[in-house]
C-alpha cells in the first residue's frame, strides 16, 4: 500500500486544488460525472494492467472498445438481435480477440507490441467494414439496457451513484482477489518478473499469459459495451480511439511497471481517477482545451517520476535492511 502513497498524494493534490479554486467541482452532479467516467476508463485500465503485469502490452484496447461498441448497436438496431444475445455475442468477440492475441504471442512467439498493433488496425477496420462506416446509435430504444451505463442509484444523502460504478467496483474487487488471493494471480506476478524462473517452478506460463490477454480484451469489450450505451451515438471510426493509451497511462500511473511483475488494482483505479480529475479540472477551471494534452502529459510524467523516487528510496531501505540482516 505504501507504494500507492505517491499517486494517491497526486490525486488528493489535484482534487483539493481544484475544489479550492472552484466550488462547483464538489457539486454532487460533477462528482457523479467524475466517478462515472472513472468507472468506464477504470474498467479498461484494469484490463491493461493484467497484460502489463505479464510484461506485455495491448495496443488494441481502443479498437476493441470501438469494435464491440459498434457491433452491439449494429446487432441490436440493424439485425434486431435480442439484448442478451447481442451482449453475449460481443463479449464472445472480445474473448476471441484476447485468445488470438495470447496464442500468437505465446505459441507463435510474436512480440505483444506487434500483435496488438496489428489488432489496433484490424479491429478498427472491421468495425468500419461491418457497419459500413455509418454512425450507430440506440435512439430512444433499449433504455432499460442503457441504464447500466447511465442509470444512477440513490444512496443516502441524496447522492446518486452511477450504476457503472458498481460494475467497475465489482470488476475491481474480482480482479484484486484474482491477483492477490489466487495462485493464478501470484503466477502472473511471478512470470512478469522472471518468466524463465516461473516456468522452472512448474508454472504453465503460456496459459497464464493467454489468460491475461483474454482478461484484457474481455474488459475492453465490457468497456466497449458501456461506452456505447453511455454515449448513445457511436462512430465506428472514432469510438475508443487512443483509449489504449489512456488505459496504459492510468496503469503506469497506478504503479504498474512496463517491465512486468508489478501492479495493484487499487493503484490502477487511482491512476484512472487522476486522469479523469485532470480532464474535469481543466474544464471546470476554464483552462483552454488546447492546453489539456500538455497538462496531462506533464502530470503523468511528474507522477511517474515521483513514483520512481519513492521506489528508489524503498529499494535503498531494503538494501540497508538486507545488509544489516547479515551478521
Amino acid at each position: 500500500m505504501k507504494k500507492l502513497l505517491g499517486i494517491f498524494g497526486l490525486f488528493v493534490f489535484i482534487f483539493v486544488f481544484t475544489a479550492l479554486r472552484s466550488p462547483n467541482f464538489l457539486s454532487a452532479y460533477n462528482l457523479q460525472n467524475l466517478v462515472g467516467w472513472t468507472s468506464l476508463f477504470g474498467i479498461i485500465s484494469i484490463g491493461a494492467a493484467f497484460v502489463i503485469i505479464t510484461g506485455g502490452i495491448d495496443l488494441s484496447i481502443g479498437s476493441t472498445v470501438g469494435l464491440v461498441g459498434s457491433l452491439l448497436s449494429w446487432l441490436l438496431m440493424h439485425k434486431g438481435w435480442s439484448e442478451p444475445a447481442a451482449l453475449l455475442a460481443v463479449l464472445a468477440v472480445s474473448l476471441l480477440i484476447g485468445l488470438s492475441h495470447g496464442l500468437l504471442i505465446t505459441k507463435m512467439r510474436l512480440q505483444p507490441f506487434v500483435v496488438t498493433l496489428c489488432g489496433l488496425l484490424l479491429y478498427r477496420g472491421l468495425a468500419r467494414f461491418v457497419t459500413d462506416d455509418e454512425s450507430q446509435g440506440f435512439g430512444s430504444a433499449h433504455d432499460g439496457l442503457r441504464r447500466i451505463a447511465i442509470g444512477k442509484l440513490d444512496v443516502v444523502g441524496g447522492f446518486a451513484v452511477p450504476v457503472s460504478v458498481f460494475i467497475m467496483v465489482g470488476i475491481a474487487v474480482a480482479a484484486a482477489i484474482f491477483l492477490n488471493r489466487t495462485i493464478w494471480g501470484r503466477y502472473l506476478l511471478a512470470l512478469g518478473r522472471n518468466e524463465t524462473a516461473a516456468r522452472y517452478s512448474g508454472i504453465n506460463t503460456d496459459r497464464m499469459k493467454i489468460t491475461a490477454y483474454v482478461i484484457c480484451s474481455l474488459l475492453g469489450g465490457v468497456g466497449g459495451i458501456l461506452f456505447s450505451l453511455n454515449l448513445n451515438s457511436i462512430q465506428p471510426s472514432g469510438l475508443g480511439e487512443f483509449y489504449e493509451l489512456y488505459a496504459i497511462a492510468a496503469a503506469v500511473l497506478g504503479g504498474c511497471s512496463l517491465r512486468g511483475g508489478e501492479g495493484t488494482i487499487l493503484g490502477v483505479i487511482i491512476g484512472t481517477a487522476v486522469m479523469r480529475v485532470l480532464y474535469n479540472a481543466i474544464n471546470i477551471l476554464g483552462i483552454p482545451t488546447h492546453l489539456e494534452f500538455a497538462i496531462i502529459g506533464t502530470v503523468i510524467l511528474a507522477g511517474v517520476i515521483a513514483d520512481e523516487l519513492v521506489k528508489r528510496i524503498a529499494t535503498k531501505r531494503r538494501a540497508v535492511r538486507a545488509l544489516s540482516g547479515e551478521p
Binding site: L189, A190, R193, A197, S201
Partner: peptide, 21 residues
C-alpha cells in the same frame, strides 16, 4: 538468478512458489 529464483520477489513468495498449487 535467471532460472532458480525470482530476484525481485519476496523470499517468502519465492519459497512457496512451487507448493502454492
Amino acid at each position: 538468478k535467471q532460472q532458480g529464483v525470482i530476484l525481485e520477489m519476496a523470499v517468502g513468495q519465492n519459497t512457496t512458489l512451487a507448493s502454492l498449487r
